[in-house]
Simulated scan of single mutants.
Amino acid sequence: MATENLSPALHAPASSRPYAKAKPGYGKRCAPDQRPPRNDDFALLPERERYIAGYVDRLPDGAAMDIKSLAKNLPLYGQMAVAGALKALGVAGHLRHVRCLAGGGDQIRWVTRTFWSRTAHDNEWWDAFLTAEGSGSAPEAVAIASAAVASASSAEAETPSPSLSPSPSGSLAPSTAPPESAPAAPADLAVPQQRTPESAQEQHSPAYLALAQLGRSEPRLTLSATDCAVLEGLAGAWLARGVNTDYLTHALTSGLPDRVDTPVGFIRRRLVDKIPPRLPAAPTPSAPGIHGRRLMVECTECGAPGRPEALPDGLCLPCRTPAPEIDSDTAPNSALGEPLAERDIRALVGNLRDLLRVD
């Protein structure tokens, strides 16, 4: 019996064929929302694109997606053909080249990845996906949330259920009686109210505690509880400007005179005169990159980076705009308007030197 051939194109190499593996962080990344593989996934594409798409679809995540590596493992096509096929697959909605930040701390670097989708998507879907990928709201957050839900459900499943006891009618009913090991307390037995000591109820600020400790480190600056409460606001202004209690204690106890008649007045004067300046807030360090973006799409043709919405079909504006056709018969070959074959090369070079000569 004759078997109908649904795809006249050549079959892509098997997945067991050796492939080039990209560096850690680079290479192929599978996009979500893909249907299961079928024999007619790329039936609408031309023969070359169908062959290369079948090979790329079988590559695992992390495989090299640069033109040289693909052309080395595809014997039927060279680098120019592979580059043209990748551009066509990007226009068809199967792939996008992106440049994103990877790593952490001082090891942040830009890496190039290729997001591949067996199912073709339009520009709106790619823009939404890449924007969410760049903002960090991605499938990792969904996976963490689902894992938390699963752990919560498993913990709930491990909770022991109430025991069943036979009811008077003979059926099993959940037992609501308390266990024998925990007898109920008599209702008339009143539990006396526990009183908290007064020292535990008092909660003082760090400024108050620092002032109270001055007398123990320097007897000449011994303060009473009333004095600490009066000076607490001035000492709190120091801590509000970013200094700690050790800095405050050192500033108040250094360079003391031989005799301090009124410690409260002396400390008040120092708190007012030696208050530290208010430092400006440190700017939040932003991640390196263009405008702090963590993901930018690269043009499939020339590699120019940009926002996802600025590169529809994965192409920048110059690569999407066709070059104007020039009529070789009517267009002049130079400013002189003479054909190239009829020019005097030496005279032309001499004229160029005269134009470039600085007076």
Rank of each mutant, 00 (worst) to 15 (best):
S328E: 12
P276C: 07
E301W: 05
P285S: 07
C299K: 00
M296L: 15
R307Q: 09
N333P: 01
G350K: 02
L315F: 15
S328K: 12
T330V: 07
R307H: 11
L340T: 11
D313S: 14
I345T: 13
A323Q: 15
S286H: 05
A323M: 09
D329M: 10
V349L: 14
P339C: 05
L336C: 09
P312E: 04
A347R: 11
L352K: 09
L315W: 13
I290W: 10
I275F: 03
A304L: 15
S328M: 08
C302A: 10
D354N: 12
A331V: 06
P285Y: 02
P308S: 08
G292A: 11
A341S: 15
L340E: 13
L311Q: 11
A282W: 05
A310V: 06
G314H: 00
P277E: 09
A287D: 03
P283M: 03
I275G: 02
P277N: 06
C299N: 03
T300H: 04
G289V: 03
G292E: 07
A282Q: 07
G314T: 01
D327Q: 03
P277L: 06
G337R: 14
D329F: 10
A347Y: 02
T284G: 03
P308C: 10
G350A: 14
L355F: 11
G289M: 02
N333R: 06
C302T: 10
S334N: 15
G306I: 11
E309Q: 09
P288V: 07
A335C: 14
S334L: 04
L340I: 08
R346Y: 08
P285V: 04
A310P: 00
E338Q: 15
V297S: 00
I275L: 14
R353W: 02
C319E: 01
H291I: 02
A281M: 03
D313G: 13
E325K: 03
T284W: 04
L311C: 09
L295D: 00
R357M: 06
H291E: 08
T300E: 11
P324F: 10
A341N: 07
R278A: 11
E309V: 13
A347S: 09
P308F: 09
E338S: 12
L336S: 13
A331D: 11
I326C: 00
R346A: 15
I290E: 10
C319N: 04
S334Q: 05
L348D: 15
L311P: 00
L356Y: 05
P308D: 08
L311D: 01
I290L: 09
H291N: 10
A287C: 01
C316W: 00
L355K: 13
T284R: 14
P332Y: 12
L315Y: 13
V358P: 03
L336K: 13
A287H: 03
G289N: 04
D329K: 11
C302M: 12
L356H: 04
N351I: 03
L352W: 14
R343H: 06
L315H: 15
A310F: 05
T321V: 12
E298W: 00
S286R: 06
S334W: 06
C302E: 12
D354K: 12
L355C: 12
P322M: 13
P280Q: 05
D313L: 09
P318Y: 09
L355D: 13
L352I: 08
N333D: 07
L348M: 14
C299T: 01
D329V: 10
C319K: 00
M296D: 04
L317P: 02
P280Y: 02
A331L: 02
A287V: 06
D344M: 08
S286K: 08
R307E: 15
C299F: 00
